[in-house]
Design a protein around this nucleic acid. Structure first.
Lengths: 192, 192
DNA sequence: GTCTATAGACGGATAGAC
DNA sequence: GTCTATCCGTCTATAGAC
């Protein structure tokens, strides 16, 4: 049996509110109300509104990094690896589109210290994709003139999902992730 | 000789402020101050803060639509057309990254009526890319199982630029647009 | 069309009782 | 750890003089 603590209710409420309205347009009163507590009770758990954002953003960044690192380790064949990495990264953004929106769109609302911390995780995500590409190029199976730029573009497909994706829409997350993975292979596989 | 009216100064100030801080976090005082006028003077030209956003967003959407329609008309060869469309669309987002950020990220801050109006322009942009793909597939030169999804992905490359691109950074807009155009051709050109 | 001044509402955060 | 009450600053928008 799963007990949901007040602290967890608060985080869930923050995810809902921040993803719907954006950080700046969300009031602490709104978050408190969604969590079923008074405005003052929020400050028992978090020092500030930004602290709530930081918790959501850090957790989201860590989750995304874990997904892509796990995918990178799951294959040895460079083409399979790219396909898996893009599939899993895009699927994560579809399945976690609310957290993803906060991760991707509210980065600038973090304090400089917190921004630096999650910024390091972002660079790890990019490096993981770059390494997978570079390895495939070195093996002669993939083809990418601009490895950092191509890696970034592959990640962009997933990232841009959070701008518009809603669960229950006309296309499923798996469908979109499959499309992205297929496009990624076409973008990077050595042709001649 | 170019005379800059107060109205234009106001719009420029709004673009600066909205793109730096986001719509919700921008105060009308900030916009007024950047435009060199008092807070009250803003309301001589616009009824509300949202009216400023609407003006910027509508103009930006129209500009992006014009860019991609012009590019679509510039070529007859399907591969060249895709290359040109993606190049010009990505270059526009790099060259107008501040307006682009407002167009792409502050869509939800518009009133329902204004959102419907710019929403129609968005659908025209998507349709223009879909038509170019469908034509190429029909001619047997391009290959896309999922035309709407692929069209959206091609546009995503440019759209996602506004999330991080800053002029004067390590890579130029032309460089990135060239990369995106090349990736787009790889994604869509018929292979066997 | 620009200003100063301010109305009127709201927001983040805190005080102090229970 | 949760509440009610509230401080105090800020915000959008307006009033009214020039």
């Amino acid at each position: 049996m799963t007990t949901i603590t007040a602290r967890e209710r608060l985080i869930n409420a923050a995810v809902e509110a921040f993803s719907e309205k954006g950080f700046a347009a969300t009031t602490t009163r709104d978050i408190a109300s969604r969590a079923g507590m008074s405005p003052a009770a929020v400050y028992v758990h978090h020092d500030s509104k930004e602290s709530l954002l930081y918790t959501v953003s850090l957790d989201g960044h860590r989750s995304a990094l874990e997904i892509i690192q796990r995918a990178a380790a799951a294959s040895t064949d460079p083409v399979d690896r790219i396909r898996t990495m893009v599939f899993d990264f895009s699927l994560w953004h579809a399945d976690h589109s609310r957290v993803g929106r906060i991760v991707q769109w509210e980065y600038h609302a973090l304090t400089p210290e917190h921004r630096a911390e999650v910024g390091a995780i972002r660079r790890s995500i990019e490096r993981t994709m770059q390494d997978a590409l570079a390895d495939g190029v070195q093996q002669g199976v993939l083809d990418a003139e601009d490895v950092p730029g191509t890696a970034f573009s592959l990640l962009s497909l997933g990232v841009d999902l959070v701008r518009w994706f809603e669960p229950g829409g006309s296309r499923s997350g798996r469908e979109l992730a499959t499309l992205h993975a297929e496009l990624a292979v076409r973008m990077t596989r050595r042709t001649a």
